[in-house]
């Protein structure tokens, strides 16, 4: 299992980084940077630090799931769409290793892109010296560097599994992203707990009252869980998604059109 996973990881990492999907991911990753540039141009030194607002509202709530969707939905589905999965299914390897190897490669790529995006966005704001509280900006940046890649890894697992279950994972993934993760996560009440965003937000500002307070100035305030519980829940979601995906891949009959 480990050997096959490693081989597929290495192969897919090179391929995913040079694919059209990668190009699309990079375009999406530039959105927060563009937003930061815009803020710099029209900057006012009032209100919450831009790094906090752009970081949360654009980077984590939109860019993270979208990049994970583009890269993650192809983990297994791409092999099926390209009809190349036949070559892997007739090799003496556990079928789950196809999912694991390709998932790891996609997750590494997603995390790298998100780290670069976050770094570029915060660097633009820092260079511009927008006059907001420097301490809060630094803290938000530090936390974003953890939350964005972690969210990317979790979403990539979810969308990779979606790709093992559905013929058009991108469409369903878009629906999930906008209807559940974006809409429900901003809807008052306890339904937020059904989203990954809730736990990412808990990890982001759950133990930082200053950040939470400034974020709540711009968004609807909700009661969050502690970072350790958030981290545990996210880990369970990631493992659960991959376990379900592995189970499906191991049992799935692949019918390719001639």
């Amino acid at each position: 299992m480990l050997r096959a996973t490693w081989l597929l990881f290495v192969t897919h990492l090179v391929r995913v980084a040079t694919s059209k999907r990668a190009l699309l991911c990079l375009v999406v990753a530039l959105l927060p940077v563009a937003a930061a540039l815009l803020v710099v141009l029209i900057s006012q030194s009032e209100g919450p630090p831009p790094a906090l607002i752009i970081g949360w509202s654009l980077e984590v709530q939109l860019v993270v799931p979208l990049i994970a969707l583009v890269a993650g939905s192809g983990v297994v589905a791409e092999e099926i769409e390209d009809k190349t999965i036949s070559y892997l299914l007739v090799r003496p390897i556990p079928r789950a290793s196809i999912l694991f190897g390709r998932y790891l490669a996609s997750a590494v790529f997603v995390c790298a892109v998100l780290l670069a995006s976050t770094w570029a966005m915060t660097t633009v704001l820092e260079l511009a010296g927008s006059g907001h509280e420097q301490g809060l900006t630094s803290e938000a940046t530090r936390r974003l560097m953890l939350v964005a890649p972690l969210g990317g890894a979790v979403y990539t697992a979810i969308f990779a599994t979606l790709g093992t279950l559905l013929a058009r994972p991108i469409l369903f993934g878009m629906g999930y992203t906008f209807a559940i993760e974006v809409f429900v996560a901003n809807f008052p009440g306890t339904s937020q707990r059904l989203t990954v965003q809730y736990y990412l937000k808990s990890l982001f500002v759950g133990d930082a009252p200053d950040l939470a307070e400034r974020l709540d100035e711009a968004l609807i305030a909700v009661e969050l869980v502690g970072p350790s519980e958030a981290l545990r829940t996210l880990a369970w979601i990631l493992v659960g998604a991959l376990a379900l995906g592995a189970w499906v891949v191991s049992r799935r009959q692949v019918v390719l059109a001639a």
Binding site: R15, D82, K83, T84, S86, Y87, V90, L256, A258
Partner: peptide
């Protein structure tokens, strides 16, 4: 196994 479809990496 050599599949029918003209699909390769």
């Amino acid at each position: 196994f050599c599949p029918q479809q003209d699909a390769l990496y």
